[in-house]
Amino acid sequence: MDVTALLRERVWSASIPLEISLHTADCASYNAVPYLVHVPRLSYLAFLLPKLHAFFHTSLIYPSVLPTDAWLEYDHVPLKWHYPLGLLYDLYSGAEPASSHDASAEHAHVLSLDEGTPPWKLTLHFSNYPKDQLVQLDVQEKHIHDLFINNVKEADFLRNGTGKTVMSLSKEDSEQLWEGVKQRDFRRFARINNKFLNPQGATLRHIPMRLYLPHAASPQAEQLISPSNRVQEVGTDEKGVMTGSVRVVQGLVPLSSSSRQRQTVGTALHTLLPNLFRNTRGPCLIAAPVLHGAILPLDAGLEELIRTTTYVDGWLHIAFIML
């Protein structure tokens, strides 16, 4: 297998162990067993809702609640449905990302990433839905599909400057893409995704990438609904950065820069975040970019990255950790 295919395969199959407990306010018994599951990094938590509802059904104080009343939270942060799990984990779990420095035996290291990772402990709620922060989903999964497909379209619009490829996709192809994502069927997914990456009669123009920076939020956003329905301030961590609050930066990153220089993670970050990344190669002293649980090397080429390591919506969702 060549490196591209190998990397694509690795990213596709990477998963995160979750331990999901029912919040005490919704739980009728004292010792409901948590739900343990491995979820692919590229997948969405929304797909778990029917299973979670079925699993916790007998422990619920109000058994009449719907699967779509459920929402997940980590450390008082409601988890957004349209963020893939891998992004949520890289943003909020506090897990130390892997870096190329500690990979002396590279292969062994990559393989060991999934094994022995302690589960990420999430809390499941069936009441006090944080409507101001989360879209409420529907049983037919129409909303999550809309959120997904619009991200796919926006990515295509950036890549080609027109959105022609995605707009001319047949209804059947569009369904295949979604089913491929839902059923974890790589071949179905890749058949459609390759059309996006190799548009007929067009060259790729811009890189769909979003940067998620930890930030001190506005007073309004600093308040989150706590499980007990009180308004509570979000804590700050030991580095004085607001936990749970992120600022998203997105801009036009051409595939090749004007001087025909190869676009790398470093050149893109220097363009989008010129104060944090003061030059194209030197690392930033306070923050590092993380993708799929690993610190991104600044000399990684962006074209290679969008062909191998994007999320299923076509985006490079890059989290930042404070150093």
Binding site: K80, D146, N151, E154, G251, L252
Partner: peptide
């Protein structure tokens, strides 16, 4: 936007405008 996609409600206007 551009007769192509509907932004998510939490996307920032400045990111959309810039792109």
């Amino acid at each position: 936007i551009g007769n192509v996609f509907s932004p998510a409600l939490d996307e920032s206007v400045e990111n959309l405008w810039r792109c």
